[in-house]
Simulated scan of single mutants.
Amino acid sequence: MKNSKNSWFAKFAKKTSSYAGKPATFALAFTTIVVWAFTGPLFGYSDTWQLVINTGTTIVTFLMVFLIQNSQNRDSEALQIKLDELIRVQKTANNALMDLEDLPEEELDRVRAEFVKLAEEHRKRSARQTAELPEP
């Protein structure tokens, strides 16, 4: 696994994603839209005036998709590793579940069906146990 701390893109994506989620960034974007809207009469609501905001927002959106996806992928991978460690240290855990994200779709569906069945059995057992309890 490549060390993401050495990757300039990973650092840039993390910082940018962090800043993108801040209220000040939203305020800046909102202010930009308000200023653009108020300049409409000044430019006669021309095609160029509209093109400026359309092009700007498209470029920002396009680039942010990749930056945020990079951060999301890294966060998901870190979370998966943490979950794998929790599974690994549990003596009664099924260690075969540690790499589920790498299984083919059909295999994931099969494992999911097994856990749905286990959950249904557990609910039935719980309902029977609750029904067998004496009234207070």
Rank of each mutant, 00 (worst) to 15 (best):
N94I: 00
A119T: 15
I81H: 14
S76T: 15
Q90A: 13
A96C: 10
H122K: 12
E77H: 08
R125P: 05
R74M: 03
R88L: 05
A127S: 15
D109E: 15
D102H: 13
E77C: 02
A113H: 03
D75N: 13
L103F: 04
D84V: 04
R112K: 14
H122T: 11
N94F: 00
L86T: 06
V89D: 09
K117V: 00
L97A: 04
I81P: 02
V89W: 13
E121T: 00
I81D: 11
A127E: 10
D75M: 14
L79M: 14
A127I: 02
L97I: 06
H122D: 14
R74L: 10
S76H: 15
K91S: 13
Q90T: 12
N95V: 07
R74Y: 01
L97T: 01
L79H: 13
A96W: 09
Q80C: 03
E105H: 08
V89I: 15
L97M: 07
K82V: 04
K117M: 08
K117A: 12
E106H: 05
E85A: 08
R112W: 11
D99N: 13
L118W: 04
R74H: 05
E120V: 03
E85S: 07
E77N: 11
I81M: 11
I87P: 00
N73C: 07
R74I: 06
E106N: 09
L108T: 06
L97G: 01
K117S: 03
L97Q: 00
E120H: 09
D102R: 13
M98Q: 06
S76Y: 13
I81N: 15
N94D: 12
Q80P: 05
V89L: 07
I81C: 08
D109Q: 12
R74C: 00
R123N: 07
N95D: 14
S126M: 14
M98A: 03
A96F: 07
P104D: 10
A96E: 15
R88E: 08
F115T: 01
L86K: 12
E121Q: 09
D84H: 05
F115M: 02
L97F: 02
F115K: 04
K91V: 08
I87N: 02
R110D: 06
V89A: 02
H122Q: 13
I81R: 15
M98S: 02
S76F: 14
I81W: 04
R74A: 03
P104H: 07
K124T: 05
L83A: 10
T92N: 11
A113G: 00
D102G: 09
Q80E: 10
T92E: 10
I81Q: 13
E120A: 09
R112S: 11
D99T: 02
A78C: 06
R125L: 08
L97P: 01
S126I: 03
E114Y: 08
L100T: 01
K91Y: 09
A127T: 03
A127R: 06
E105F: 08
K82G: 10
L108R: 15
L86D: 13
Q80F: 02
L100K: 03
K124E: 13
L118S: 11
R112F: 04
D75T: 06
A119N: 12
L79G: 12
A127Y: 01
L100D: 01
A119D: 12
K91G: 07
T92F: 09
S76D: 15
E85F: 01
E101Y: 15
A113I: 00
E77P: 00
S76C: 07
E101C: 05
L118R: 14
N73E: 15
V116D: 09
A119P: 02
D84Q: 15
R88M: 05
